[in-house]
């Protein structure tokens, strides 16, 4: 059970567009909302209305400032959830078999009734994708909304992860990376989808699209611009007299 499958039939995952994300955190809230009410143990909060609130989240949005050698700094909003790695270290370290990667679609899941809450899978994850729920004592992680994507009780347009469904900017895309013609495979190929921390050797399935280069006004100055220079440098007439008179006071 805790060995990784050699291959998976499908490779479901997300494309996250760092160019489009506006950092509104709607995906964080919809993720918490769906996953606290549906599959598995709820995502608990400790001291939620007090001075020191802590809680379990499966998706969090960071914001980074990137300062190039020349030019202005750029702000990049950065949603992060489980990347459903092909070579997921969190699966093989699990002593109980609670942590597993599905052969049919590649989703990495936790069987909560087998989890002893040792935390080793969270230790082995470079991305911080797993959080031990303080109330339940079991490991929680992104399920890729496995209870939505195959759920025939939902209208078809809702059969995608809650974060993707809710994103107002269209910065999150869901699909099958094993199919080269899928929306996510094409997007990733077109825009240079990248892996996070490739040196960790986890082979993440989720891809991040880098921000597009910023456009510039260089060379776009209107031909009439020189005639739009301010003409009157010094006030004249009544205003000129007033200016001088006030200077003297």
């Amino acid at each position: 059970m805790t060995s990784l499958p050699e291959t998976t039939t499908r490779k479901l995952g997300l494309v996250i567009d760092l160019d489009t994300c506006v950092g509104c955190h709607a995906c964080v809230i919809s993720c918490k909302g769906w996953n606290t009410e549906n599959y598995g143990a709820p995502l608990s909060d400790q001291d939620p209305y007090g001075a020191d609130p802590v809680g379990t989240f499966l998706n969090r949005v960071h914001s980074y400032e990137v300062q190039p050698d020349q030019g202005a700094a750029q702000l990049v909003h950065f949603p992060k959830s489980c990347l459903h790695c092909d070579d997921a270290p969190c699966v093989t370290v699990c002593p109980t078999g609670a942590s597993y990667k599905r052969v049919e679609d590649g989703i990495v899941l936790v069987n909560e009734s087998d989890c002893i809450g040792c935390g080793l899978c969270a230790w082995s994850c470079p991305y911080g994708a797993r959080e031990l729920d303080a109330a339940e004592g079991v490991m929680k992680k992104c399920t890729l909304c496995v209870d939505r994507i195959y759920n025939e009780n939902l209208p078809e347009e809702d059969r995608e992860p809650a974060c993707v469904r809710t994103c107002p900017a269209g910065a999150r895309h869901f699909g099958d990376f094993a199919d080269p013609d899928s929306n996510v495979s094409k997007l990733s190929a077109e825009r240079g989808g990248m892996d996070l921390m490739p040196e960790q050797g986890t082979k993440p399935v989720n891809k991040y699209l880098p921000p597009r280069p910023k456009d510039s006004w260089e060379g776009e100055v209107d031909v009439l611009a020189p005639w739009l220079e301010p003409v009157a440098q010094e006030p004249q007439g009544f205003l000129g007299w007033l200016d001088k008179a006030l200077e003297k006071i």
């Binding site: 760092l18 960071h62 914001s63 980074y64 400032e65 990137v66 300062q67 190039p68 050698d69 700094a73 750029q74 990049v76 950065f78 470079p126 990248m194 892996d195 996070l196 921390m197 490739p198 040196e199 991040y208 880098p210 921000p211």
Partner: peptide
């Protein structure tokens, strides 16, 4: 490498 943005400049949280 964590953010994949390292080749564009210095990354700061």
């Amino acid at each position: 490498t964590a953010t994949g943005l390292g080749d564009r400049g210095k990354v700061r949280a």
